[in-house]
């Protein structure tokens, strides 16, 4: 519904809340994001160990894939202070720009220490195989399990 409203009226776009990207960046070409936008997203993904771009919020996800990703990060024990989420439904410019930034066509998107890790399919696969836990431990996001972590398998 939001999207339809945005398409229908350019006037509306100017008044959209843009938590991450300044209103001025709305005027950039749609296909290629500017260096400025790129730098802002880069700063955002570097700001916190784990950054998640999602539809909705962790408490109220608005898409099943985003919900699953939030649940997995929660199961892995990612502490709240190390996780930052951006709701792309509140920011039309970010929703487009993030896909260009990572060259990844879908949302959610997970970044760990500034590096793009993947979307829902990849996070789920890595969660099941144990790779996600290893990655989060190596990156210092979650503490390693006491004793031999491999003993559980």
């Amino acid at each position: 519904m939001l999207r339809t409203a945005l398409r229908a009226s350019h006037l509306q776009r100017g008044v959209m809340r843009t938590p991450l990207l300044a209103p001025s960046s709305l005027t950039i070409a749609r296909r290629f994001i500017s260096q400025e936008t790129r730098a802002k997203i880069q700063d955002a993904v570097n700001s916190t160990p784990v950054v998640l771009f999602m539809k909705g919020t962790p408490d109220a996800p608005q898409c099943g894939f985003s919900r699953a990703t939030v649940q997995i990060l929660d199961l892995q024990g990612v502490p709240p202070e190390k996780l930052k989420t951006f709701n792309v439904l509140e920011d039309a410019e970010l929703r487009t720009a993030i896909k260009e930034f990572s060259e990844w066509p879908t949302i959610p998107q997970v970044y760990v220490n500034g590096e793009f890790v993947g979307g829902c399919d990849i996070i789920l696969g890595m969660h099941q195989s144990g790779e996600l836990e290893t990655l989060l431990e190596k990156q210092g996001v979650i503490p390693p399990i006491e004793g031999d972590a491999k003993a559980s398998s």
């Binding site: 990844w104 066509p105 993947g118 979307g119 399919d121 696969g125």
Partner: peptide
């Protein structure tokens, strides 16, 4: 890697 495979399909 899985990421590379998915990017390939994407």
């Amino acid at each position: 890697t899985t990421l590379a495979r998915h990017r390939f399909i994407n």
